[in-house]
Design a protein around this nucleic acid. Sequence first.
DNA 1: CTGAAAGCGCTTACAG
DNA 2: CTGAAAGCGCTTACAG
Lengths: 349, 349
Amino acid sequence: MVKQRFRATSYDVAEAAGVSQSTVSRALSGDPIVAAATRERIVEAARRLNYHIDSSASRMRSGRLNTIAVVVICPEDEDVRAFNPFHYALLGGICAAASARGMETIVSFQGAPDRLDDHFERSRRAIGMIVFGTSENRAAWDYFQASADDGCHVVCWGAPAPAHELPWVRADNHGGARAAVEHLLDHGYRRIVYVGEADCPQRQFAERYDAYAETLQAAGLAPRIMTLEPGLSRHEQGRRAAAALLEAGEPFDGLFTACDDIALGAMALLEERGLNVPGDVGVVGFDGVKAGQFSVPPLTTIEPDFAVAGKALVNRLQALVDGEDGPQGRVPVRLVVRGSALGRVATPA
Amino acid sequence: MVKQRFRATSYDVAEAAGVSQSTVSRALSGDPIVAAATRERIVEAARRLNYHIDSSASRMRSGRLNTIAVVVICPEDEDVRAFNPFHYALLGGICAAASARGMETIVSFQGAPDRLDDHFERSRRAIGMIVFGTSENRAAWDYFQASADDGCHVVCWGAPAPAHELPWVRADNHGGARAAVEHLLDHGYRRIVYVGEADCPQRQFAERYDAYAETLQAAGLAPRIMTLEPGLSRHEQGRRAAAALLEAGEPFDGLFTACDDIALGAMALLEERGLNVPGDVGVVGFDGVKAGQFSVPPLTTIEPDFAVAGKALVNRLQALVDGEDGPQGRVPVRLVVRGSALGRVATPA
DNA sequence: CTGAAAGCGCTTACAG
DNA sequence: CTGAAAGCGCTTACAG
């Protein structure tokens, strides 16, 4: 219970173990040249004195940083409540992957245009940055693109805008969208509309649309897109898109949406208007967010492997820092079948 | 686009500005004693050379750390997908509060018993730790309790076990639970059951139960509790509890649950069994998680102020480090009225 | 208001 | 296999 005021240095350990300070440093950094018996004495003395290597001193002398900065781009108002939970799962995957590689993660949530900050690498706090989050905050993405242009090491999830040339890691959007559409087709849905954007800052959405269109055409069916109203939450965009589809009058019986939040919004509106999901309309989302487990019906979705995504981002950043400009990364996805696209119910008329 | 190999030091800036290195250090650290004209020359030179203070060197020399470690306790299998989104919102609040105080946050997700780690403070990476997450991972909580006993500075959200004596910050569970129960009463519900635990490691749950019971008794009604099956997800616990209530046969028309995920599970089961929420049963949760916005009906809940919670935790940790053992913290909550407790529908019989 | 100098606690050639 | 010594890049008394 006693808080220690005294903090041991490597000199204290050296004295206690009867060796020089440099030998302590070698022993505790795992240098195999140190004799086993010597190492044992040193480790024991360090334990007794509750000694731990001072990270600042070690970093300064060695130049090795062993830290990654993770920047989560939020909406400009920085409201984290409304934030897409997909990004939180990705954050967890990145932190776990970094930890598995013996690296630490400095995490910052950035949104407000006047508070964007990329000092991490310049001040030698981190070897580089992993950036991800909402593609809506254009100012933030432009800012970190500028950081990269300026010599910082930046890797991102997604890569939002065509103009942005950041090294990226993405989901297998093609395979995922194909699996989603095939799932709908297999369950008898034929008039399947894509809800999202085909030509938008969020490149991943465009990839999902392309694979959707290809898969439908391969089945001899025509693609159809319902685009989103800008400036709204994904959920609200989904609601409005579904409403617009009903208003348009053109019949449809399936929705493949650019992300889960859009799907949840669309489902809610369809139910309100008296349509049954999946009996009248089948719905498949993309992201694997937790809320989809609890919706009524539970949402069938495409879920990226968050652990693999985290590893891929960390590896890519390390490679970039090491000067290897490796290939872009793709993260595998899987179809999570829940209740929202289990098949049409034949209705009279 | 050119990556700079050269990294300027304060000596380079000194030379460029025609002053000594110590003056550069003073000017850039904001020491007001430096003449305005000198400071200007220095700032300009630093900008030109793209100079930034080396964080390791600064920390080593000054001893000031300016970093907080944030430990998010996960389930032992470290599956971040199943993780309560409430904790993510709290994480965001903490990072924002730290940033507003000019501090950085090292974030780690810890779950597996053999990978628990509290080296942050010992190795001078951080001034202390803010710990929160699932109360189910007892081994992890015991571990960080031991860290605190051992002299580390630890502040937590909630404080899970009675045996744990960590400094904490908690929601205003009393006020929140009272508001929840009063909302149910105001909308005509009379047989209101608490779903959760009254006597459990999660102290916050106990506080919510106590206020629930008090409020009911003040209205001349009898409290009733339906406890949870251990070892399941909160959602599944909610389902089972609702099923058990139906089986018990004793009539009820309202549920106040210990957290939102329990409420969502309970609502799903009630709907499956043909009961209408809120027409037959009113439901109010606690946490303000996003999934509650999208459930059918949307979940009425008690939401803590995440920004205030983050600030309170950061302040409390700083005070602890400064040797001021201030009072425990309470974070205000607000009732978020959505659709799940809008009133009974009078049904025949 | 500014400069010369010491020193924070390590890692790592270099020498033996 | 181990030790003596230099030095990473700052901050901060001390002197002027």
